[in-house]
Amino acid sequence: MNTIRLAVPDKATRGEIIEIKAMIQHEMESGHRPDEYGRPIPRFIIKHFECRYNDRVVFRAEFFPAIAANPFLSFFTRATESGTLEFRWIDQDGGVATELVELEVD
């Protein structure tokens, strides 16, 4: 499965704005390139990303062919309560990669 790299603080104070970074290993093949014999390489990209904080979507993104390989996202959210952050990437064929991170808020 694709390697995922996440950077989320372990702890935060209530109301604090935290930065979240997420990267996934993916070729993001645009569908516009020929292979070494001149045949088109079929498109293979991630279409959708979302981050849920205790089941509430806090960040969502649609991906398109022009996005570079191994997409790297960085975004902010407000730490409201202890809970789980769920990261989910869905590719064009419906393949899913997920990862969970616990966040402690006091």
Binding site: T3, R5, A7, M23, Q25, N70, F72
Partner: peptide, 15 residues
């Protein structure tokens, strides 16, 4: 060390 995409391979290699 986070944004450098090469570490995706380093992480996987460690695994």
């Amino acid at each position: 060390d986070f944004a450098n995409p090469g570490y995706l391979w380093v992480d996987q290699g460690r695994q």
